[in-house]
């Protein structure tokens, strides 16, 4: 990276208006059934955000909307003050572990290198330098010795670490992690939390979909309670309390659910 752009980025940072992620009035619906309703929040740089909510609350949909993979009915999403597509390089995504076929003939090292593919670009080959960087990322997660293993030989936790390494190697500034802690061993969980904290301390931002309410206060400094709409967003110690959780998990908006369902089937109820 040359000095010119470096300077430019510093200038931008100093203005401090370009939050890593800024979402205004985001509304998403599938076949007229709202999945996200009027979601608004701003994630500031250097924060570790837990995204918490019941099943079907729209957490994964939120990620997809951020990455511009699904059409939205309204609202605006700014990633580093820009459209996502323009800032794609600076966003790293860790999909759910179940999303791929782990029997696929690749090694763990190759999977991590995939994080560099868009940087390498079309028609260019993976070089030794790229492999070294992939290995360094794996080192950080303690799986460097598994680089040549086929991915089906890894344990669930190791597979999750491989996915995280693939995101790290990208050296992004905003991380979107979809349930990185689901069905992993304790060691993996500790390492992932450590890495996420390092990222935060380096001024990066991470949004983490998380299910285990017990660990939320100790893992995340900021929390987004989501159930169709934003129930609460803010510092964990201020927001993460019984009343909000009750609203997130208890108060299902049954009437709204029924009405939107009726809308979808074009019935009056």
């Amino acid at each position: 990276m040359n000095n010119g752009t470096d300077f430019g980025r510093q200038a931008l940072d100093r203005r401090a208006v370009t939050a890593p992620l800024e979402i205004q009035h985001l509304t998403v619906s599938f076949a007229r059934k709202p999945v996200l309703w009027d979601v608004t929040f701003v994630a500031s740089a250097g924060s570790l955000i837990g995204v918490v909510g019941p099943n079907g609350a729209g957490k994964s949909t939120l990620f997809k909307a951020i990455m511009d993979l699904i059409p939205r009915q309204g609202g605006e999403i700014r990633v580093f003050g820009d459209r996502f597509t323009a800032q794609r390089r600076r966003v790293a995504y860790v999909p759910q572990r179940e999303s791929v076929d782990w029997d696929f003939p690749v090694t763990a090292g190759e999977v991590v290198t995939m994080g560099l593919y868009s940087e390498i670009g079309w028609f260019r080959r993976v070089t030794r330098e790229h492999r070294r960087r992939a290995l360094a990322a794996m080192e950080r997660l303690g799986i460097a010795d598994l680089a040549n293993r086929q991915i089906s030989e890894l344990s669930g936790g190791q597979q999750q670490r491989t996915f995280l390494a693939r995101a790290l190697v990208q050296q992004a500034d905003l991380y979107l992690l979809d349930e990185p802690f689901s069905a992993v061993d304790a060691a993996t969980e500790t390492i992932i939390v450590e890495v996420l904290r390092e990222l935060r301390d380096a001024g990066k931002t991470a949004l983490v979909i998380h299910h285990d309410l017990q660990t939320v206060p100790s893992y995340f400094d900021t929390v987004l309670l989501l159930n169709l709409r934003v129930v609460a967003f803010g510092k964990t110690d201020e927001v993460f309390q019984a009343e909000n959780l009750q609203k997130t998990y208890g108060g299902r908006l049954t009437l709204l659910d029924e009405a939107t369902e009726a809308m979808r089937h074009r019935r009056t109820i």
Partner: peptide, 21 residues
């Protein structure tokens, strides 16, 4: 020419989409 892109596509379509392929 397209080896690594095809590999990525076959392995993890969701990730490929997210990376803008």
């Amino acid at each position: 020419l397209f080896f690594k892109e095809l590999k990525l596509l076959c392995f993890d379509e969701g990730f490929a989409l997210a990376r803008g392929y």
